[in-house]
Design a protein around this nucleic acid. Structure first.
Length: 262
DNA sequence: ATGGTTGGCCCCCAA
């Protein structure tokens, strides 16, 4: 059963429901994982998505902030959510596909502006969230699993526009990169996007605060598709849809896609 | 070193 998968931080799914519909029409991924829906589950605009074939939904939400949703053409079973770091925020949800694959949709905390847990509580929460992800994968090594989402960390030198200039910027500090690597290694997760596109700069996010995001091109790869080694070989056709950043009233993130031949 | 933009919501917080 081959299927295509997309992950996209939508930054308000109600405001950008037309953009989600456009992606569904133009790319038709079988499964679309959204982050930063910014609304309770009962306010998701599902009436926009259902006519396009996305009738299966597994989601967690809250008013105003965070929120994760899996919209699917394929049947899904809710596989629960974990409150990593005890924040009480809607940042994770999992779903089981009919072929047994377990799909995790994550929205890792951004972590505030100051990369110091003594001075900035949010940074500590981000590190704790990643540590608890690591511990969960250690306690129960995932199999036949896919993990996607806005992990809010650009791990590699070619995942940012300037490695040197971002070393002290939250999302690319060594301590964050180490914490993400520990979570990745604990699960044995393969970075599917980088496995397929090993060379060159690769970004999925460009700040709203640039005069010309395209010309300046000061991007970061914050959005990821991972898979466990037993199914990573079935993944192919990874793509990051840069042109979506140029759509009207865009999210600051663009969709990241992959196909799985399972 | 600083400022720049966006979204949600109760006039400020988070990103």
């Amino acid at each position: 059963m081959p299927f295509t998968l997309a992950t996209w931080n939508i930054n308000s799914v109600r405001l950008r429901a037309p953009l989600v519909a456009r992606l569904m029409e133009e790319q038709a991924p079988d499964i679309l994982c959204l982050q930063e829906c910014k609304c309770p589950v009962e306010k998701l605009p599902l009436e926009v998505f259902a006519p396009l074939g996305y009738t299966h939904v597994v989601a967690r939400g809250q008013k105003g902030y965070n929120g994760v949703a899996i919209l699917s053409k394929l049947p899904l079973e809710d596989a629960g959510s974990v409150d990593f770091a005890g924040l009480g925020q809607a940042r994770h949800v999992a779903a089981r596909l009919e072929n047994g694959v377990l799909l995790h949709n994550f929205y890792v905390p951004a972590g505030g502006d100051v990369p110091d847990r003594a001075a900035n509580e949010k940074f500590g929460q981000k590190l704790d969230f990643l540590t608890e992800m690591r511990d969960a994968f250690r306690a129960s090594r995932p199999e036949r699993s896919i993990l996607v989402g806005d992990l809010n960390i650009a791990p590699g030198e070619d995942d940012v526009w300037s490695h040197k200039q971002l070393l002290k910027i939250v999302s690319h500090t060594p301590v964050e990169v180490d914490h993400l690597a520990a979570a990745q290694e604990a699960g044995g997760w393969v970075d599917v996007t980088r496995a397929h596109i090993p060379e060159g700069k690769l970004y999925s996010w460009w700040s709203y605060r640039a005069r010309d995001w395209d010309a300046a091109d000061k991007g970061r790869r914050l959005d990821h598709v991972w898979a466990t080694p037993d199914i990573a070989g079935a993944a192919g056709d990874s793509r990051i849809l840069r042109p979506v950043r140029g759509w009207d009233q865009p999210s600051d993130h663009v969709p990241v896609l992959a196909r799985f031949d399972l």
